[in-house]
Amino acid sequence: MNQFLRNLTASQQVGALFITVFGLLALATVAVVLLTVHSQETQDDGTRAEQARDWRQLLGTSWFMVVIFWLAWATGEAMATLLFALIAFFALREFITLSPTRRGDHRSLVLAFFVVLPIQFLLVVTRHFDLFTVFIPVYVFLAIPVASVLGGDPQRFLERNSKLQWGIMVCVYGMSHVPALLLLQFPRFNYEGKQAFLVFFMVIVVQTCMLVQHVVTQRLKLPPSLPGISSSFNWRTWGWGVMAGSVLGVLLTFITPFKPPQALAAALIACIAGSLGHLVMKALKRDRGVTTWGHRGRSTTGANGLLDRVDALCFAAPIFFHSVRWTFGASA
């Protein structure tokens, strides 16, 4: 079996990976649907129905992610970058909607959406990695408040601008590091054409961490460690999640350019960054008094915003990218 997989070309290997993942997801979906039907027949109490809805939501997110990554891989690097640029666009739209911008910010917003975002992703696709890592933290850091100050409105100036810059850092800068992984090249390891595995590795590890954390939270029903920020977050369940993600990372060593201890370290870094980033975004939502970044009034129906689904990735991607790049001397 192993020998057979090794003999396939890089793209056949990636294809096989996606077939496996789609198959597993399909099985999980069928199982959840059957369970839901069963619980409806027996007319169980509300908690069971609530759990089923939770599961469906998690499955929905997983399907969404996998389809996105399959599309990203299948359509090539340029299309993949465009896809992530679109995700960044919609995520930033959600973020800005809940930030208190004023009329004087209009020019900075135009700058953020129609200049900064396209340039950042263009830098990825043209492999200007040195500029790509400093463009937003150095140049845009000044450009945004300058555009804002020219609007001539000093009221809550720092608050408005820092929120806008935060949104750009999370949604644009963070998200742009996911397609950047597709372009990494490793000097001492023949990994050409298999970078999609690296993206897959990071995403699956982070998602597993979040999923296990979620499931353990439901099972153990531990009191929240930070009740002011999240009604579900608990350090012990968080530990389980990070551990599960890291173990999976070791098991997936064969699809990465890493050795097992390196895979463990990379997975650990991605999991910690992703799950804590998700927690940080929860604090922002609490502050705004909402449960989701999506359309207002939708939170009761259980539908989520895009940013709720991708925020862990936005925080994990830059840290994962740079850790890998520096450890392996990888270049563009």
């Binding site: 666009f89 930033l92 739209r93 959600e94 800005i96 909607t97 911008t101 009329r103 209009h106 917003l109 135009v110 959406f113 129609f114 359309h295 207002r296 009034g297």
Partner: peptide, 21 residues
Amino acid sequence: IDNIQRVMPKGEVVPVPILCS
């Protein structure tokens, strides 16, 4: 109509993306 004045305030020509309802 919620938020639309943020998309395109009086006197501006370029609209920005913000969720409205």
